[in-house]
């Protein structure tokens, strides 16, 4: 039996209905593509990434997490004009990592969710920049201020968003 550092004796594993599993990522993608046109500051948010973290942590299955991350990342890539796979790789790593962490730690409370999102946003950005620069030769600028701001905003959003998405959870 794996050792878990949780506040409960047993970690709870959740699943989602098929409509929720399909529609939530699609709505996240849609909002990510639509809102920056009207609300310019919204380009700081990364809703598909937050959805990947949420699903991975709730399901607590590494395979499920990396597949979810991979699919959402590839869809996110296909809306851009860049080669498909940059977001795919970054979200795959985040999905795997978040589900691994979710299996070991209790990340059901707001504070834990904030910290987990902060950490995985940083992981996502590092992987994204590495792939984009190293493999695709894109010229990207790393700005510490922008990255820290983005991480804090996304972490704060995750704390609220995950509470809303909890309604779609079903006990496995």
């Amino acid at each position: 039996m794996p050792i878990t550092y949780t506040s409960q004796e047993q970690v709870e594993v959740y699943r989602f209905s098929a409509p929720a599993a399909i529609l939530i990522p699609l709505v996240a993608l849609f909002l990510q593509a639509f809102l920056p046109l009207r609300l310019h500051f919204f380009s700081l948010f990364d809703l598909p990434l937050l959805v990947v973290i949420f699903f991975a942590v709730a399901r607590r299955s590494q395979v499920s997490g990396l597949v979810t991350g991979s699919l959402i990342g590839l869809l996110q890539d296909s809306l851009t004009h860049q080669p498909i796979g940059i977001y795919g790789i970054a979200n795959t790593v985040v999905g795997f990592g978040a589900s691994s962490l979710g299996a070991k730690l209790d990340v059901e409370n707001v504070g834990a969710r904030f910290l987990v999102t902060l950490f995985f946003y940083a992981v996502h950005e590092v992987v994204y920049f590495t792939v984009a620069r190293g493999l695709v030769k894109l010229t990207l600028q790393w700005s510490w201020g922008h990255e820290i701001g983005g991480a804090l905003i996304n972490a704060a959003t995750a704390a609220v968003l995950f509470t809303l998405l909890d309604r779609f959870k079903q006990r496995a």
């Binding site: 990510q32 639509f34 046109l37 809306l79 851009t80 004009h81 860049q82």
Partner: peptide, 13 residues
């Protein structure tokens, strides 16, 4: 204009 790429690294609509 109905949407954007959703990424700061891809400036397209």
């Amino acid at each position: 204009v109905i949407g954007s790429s959703g990424s700061e690294q891809s400036r397209s609509v």
